[in-house]
Write a protein that binds this DNA or RNA. Structure first.
Length: 416
RNA sequence: GCGGCGAUGGCGGAGUGGUCAAUCGCACUAGACUGUAAAUCUGGCGCCUUCGGGCUUCGAAGGUUCAAAUCCUUCUCGCCGCA
């Protein structure tokens, strides 16, 4: 069986940290930079595996907290792991590369952020001037409570209590059977104080050690029998000193690769990711956890030395009626698209190629599920293509021009 | 023709003397969404506004009352029953 491996295929001739790479897993290769579709509950919402193959998806990422709650780790294990369970296979029926997230994001989404409208990206600079949304944030009845040893979650399904520790997250992820999985970490709120960011980061560091020990103790995946790769997660939020400290600590541990996690201030993402990657070993892959709603985040992530991205935005935005176009993001539910009889895209490979704005507008207004499906597939196609084109542009030493051309169009004023 | 019931904002439908520009749902409209609590959520939705408030509304016209979507009279229209 193939072992986990990462090779740098080419370093960018134009941008310091950017590189083209290849991750080898027991279930195949992932060419980087690339975008990883999120299939939280072993389902990329709205899409079949054949759709994912159509649009060039190389791997899929599922979630530990959600699959643990439903259908439960034992059922997933008895299904042969989540990739086999969802038939994440190529045309030769061979299982494809996969990932699981550790539940660390739910520490934020069900904890400090729960019910507040706070997201991991702060729109304004950290503490002094909060956006109205953030000012109005009032925390009540969080579903996640953190202590030094782990996190107690209330089930989002039935309110029952569940305990996650680094060890338990490792055990669950061994049952889920992904090729690559993440250490259990604490994703903090971008609004937390500096003092809190330090204590949370230190806790995440201690948990990282425990994850490595438990992973070694557990050995190969109980679901697949394959050796899984464990990625440590760099924290530190929007503080450069903490990002550096966290990256150096994680780099000192024996991880197979690294996730850059936690919260960011929108304008500082590139700076903070660069600090993290600069302090990580060059010969190991870096994944930017949960980032990619905005194409500029992907460009800047690549410039900051990121190899892989995952993000729920393409499917969530698509379900909610927004699509990416080369001229920017378009909200198909706006009234002006009812009578727009232009084709949405000239790209024959997009699932939206045959259709007019008016038709998609109709699908969303009449609440036909096909609208959400098509838009989700299109958005994933858009981001997967974007990362693939970025890869090609680096190989051909024209990344800077590609970025300029793309962003010039995407961020110009909409004229649809 | 007689009797009964009904007519409320784009639609459905609350309200049956004062706290009603009028609950609520739908539709409409704008916004949000970055390791999925999300096929979701938030705002607006008579007219005007210096956002304090002002103005005109509940089939039509009159009337009672300090006060009417709510009570009375007539009319118009609709539905049901009897001829």
């Amino acid at each position: 069986m193939k072992e986990f491996k990462f090779e740098i295929v080419k370093k960018s001739s134009e941008v310091n940290l950017a590189r083209v790479g290849k991750i080898t897993t027991p279930h195949g290769e992932i060419l980087t930079p690339c975008f990883v579709p999120v299939g939280t509950k072993a389902s990329v919402k709205g899409l079949q595996v054949s759709d994912l193959l159509d649009i060039g998806a190389q791997s899929v990422l599922a979630n530990t907290y959600h699959l643990y709650l439903q259908p439960g780790k034992d059922r997933v294990e008895k299904n042969g792991g989540f990739p086999k369970m969802m038939s994440w296979v190529n045309n030769e029926k061979k299982i494809l590369p996969s990932w699981t997230d550790s539940g660390g994001f739910q520490v934020l989404s069900l904890g400090a952020a729960y019910g507040t409208g706070v997201t991991k990206i702060a729109t304004s600079s950290l503490i002094p001037s909060l956006s109205p949304k953030e000012k109005g944030a009032v925390q009540k009845n969080p579903l996640a409570k953190i202590d030094e040893e782990g996190v107690t979650f209330k089930s989002i399904i039935d309110g029952s209590l569940h305990r996650f520790t680094p060890e338990i997250s490792m055990q669950i992820q061994h049952s889920l059977g992904a090729d690559i999985f993440f250490a259990f970490d604490e994703c903090t709120s971008p609004l937390a104080t500096y003092e809190y960011q330090i204590s949370a980061m230190e806790r995440t560091h201690l948990w990282a050690l425990r994850c490595i020990l438990e992973h070694k103790r557990l050995g190969v995946s109980n679901a697949t029998g394959a050796q899984q790769a464990l990625f440590g997660v760099v924290q530190g939020s929007g503080y450069t000193d903490l990002r550096e400290q966290s990256a150096k600590f994680m780099a000192s541990l024996d991880f197979d690769g690294y996730g850059i996690g936690g919260s960011f201030t929108k304008s500082d993402i590139k700076r903070d990711v660069s600090i993290a990657t600069s302090n990580l070993p060059e010969n190991k892959p870096r994944h930017l956890l949960g980032m990619g709603e905005d194409p500029i985040d992907i460009f800047e992530g690549v410039e900051a030395g990121i190899d892989t991205f995952d993000c729920v935005s393409p499917t969530r935005l698509g379900r909610h009626g927004s699509i990416y176009t080369e001229n920017g993001r378009v909200d198909l539910t706006q009234s002006k698209y009812k009578d727009n009889f232009n084709k949405i895209t000239t790209d024959v490979k997009s699932p939206l190629f045959p259709f007019t704005y008016s038709y998609l507008s109709h699908l969303f207004r009449s609440k036909e599920m096909l609208g959400a499906i098509l838009a989700s597939k299109h958005n994933l196609y858009f981001l997967i293509s974007l990362t693939s084109n970025i890869r090609q542009s680096i190989l051909e030493d024209r990344f800077v021009k590609f970025k300029k051309d793309f962003c010039g169009k995407y961020y110009a004023k909409l004229t649809v």
